Amino acid sequence: MKKGLLTAAIISISCSSTVFAASCDDTRLHGYMENIKDEMRSMSSDVKSGDNESAAKRANTLITYFEKARSETPYKFTAENLQGNELKDQKAEFTKVVDDTIVVLKDLETALKSGNSSEVKKLLGAMGNQRKTGHSSFKANC
């Protein structure tokens, strides 16, 4: 009887921890961020190869993903059980970071189309800073 109970408890804990771990990656926001990561890598390759036209199209695609991500709620807010004003404030900060990123991407698209390589380099650095800000503030550790 005790072995059966122990086995059931272990299976139960294993299944529940799997469910919790999977929920972090099963959000629309996570999906958008995966797409953004892939597009950023491709855009970086385009810039390195000198294909600014393709890179500008990717910047436009990235803007679309960020616009979609803007309306999502980071999993971290749910995991930390944010409510009330704290949730409202964090959502506003998330929206601000996304909006600021969109501005950088629009500027990057313009720089790519005009062939301004020094501006492109500066704006790619700004994108890196936006990434660090977003991940340090809103990415859950799961």
Rank of each mutant, 00 (worst) to 15 (best):
M1E: 10
K2G: 13
L5N: 07
L5E: 11
L5A: 14
L6E: 07
L6K: 10
T7W: 08
A8P: 13
A8D: 08
A8V: 13
A9Q: 01
I10T: 11
I11W: 11
S12M: 14
S12N: 00
S12I: 11
S14H: 01
C15H: 00
S16H: 01
S16D: 07
S16F: 14
S17G: 03
S17T: 15
S17P: 06
T18K: 04
V19G: 02
F20K: 11
A21S: 11
A21N: 10
A22I: 06
A22D: 04
S23G: 09
D25Y: 14
D25L: 13
D26S: 15
T27R: 04
L29H: 10
H30K: 13
H30S: 10
H30Y: 15
G31W: 00
Y32M: 05
M33A: 04
E34D: 13
N35D: 13
I36C: 09
K37N: 14
D38Y: 10
R41F: 12
S42Q: 15
S45A: 13
D46V: 03
D46F: 10
V47W: 00
V47S: 00
V47N: 00
K48E: 14
S49Y: 00
S49L: 05
E53N: 04
S54P: 06
S54F: 03
A55V: 04
A56K: 02
R58K: 15
R58V: 02
R58T: 08
A59N: 00
N60L: 02
T61M: 03
T61F: 00
T61K: 12
I63W: 00
T64M: 03
T64Q: 09
Y65W: 04
Y65G: 02
Y65C: 01
F66C: 11
F66V: 06
E67C: 01
K68Q: 12
K68F: 08
K68D: 10
K68W: 07
K68N: 14
S71H: 14
S71Y: 12
E72H: 03
T78P: 03
E80H: 09
E80S: 12
L82A: 13
L82I: 12
E86D: 15
L87Y: 13
L87V: 12
K88R: 11
D89P: 07
Q90E: 15
K91G: 05
E93I: 07
E93H: 14
F94R: 06
K96H: 14
K96F: 10
V97D: 08
V97G: 07
V98L: 05
V98S: 09
D99N: 15
D99M: 07
D99G: 07
D100K: 09
T101Y: 06
T101N: 10
I102P: 09
L105C: 03
D107Y: 01
D107V: 01
L108S: 00
L108P: 01
E109V: 01
T110V: 04
T110S: 07
T110K: 08
A111Y: 04
A111Q: 03
K113V: 02
K113N: 11
S114W: 01
S114H: 01
G115I: 06
G115H: 06
S117Y: 05
S117V: 12
S118F: 07
S118D: 15
S118G: 07
E119L: 02
K121P: 01
K122I: 03
L123K: 06
L123S: 01
L123H: 02
L124S: 10
M127R: 02
N129A: 10
N129I: 06
Q130N: 12
G134A: 07
G134W: 05
G134E: 05
H135C: 06
S136G: 02
S136R: 05
S137Y: 06
N141G: 12
N141R: 08
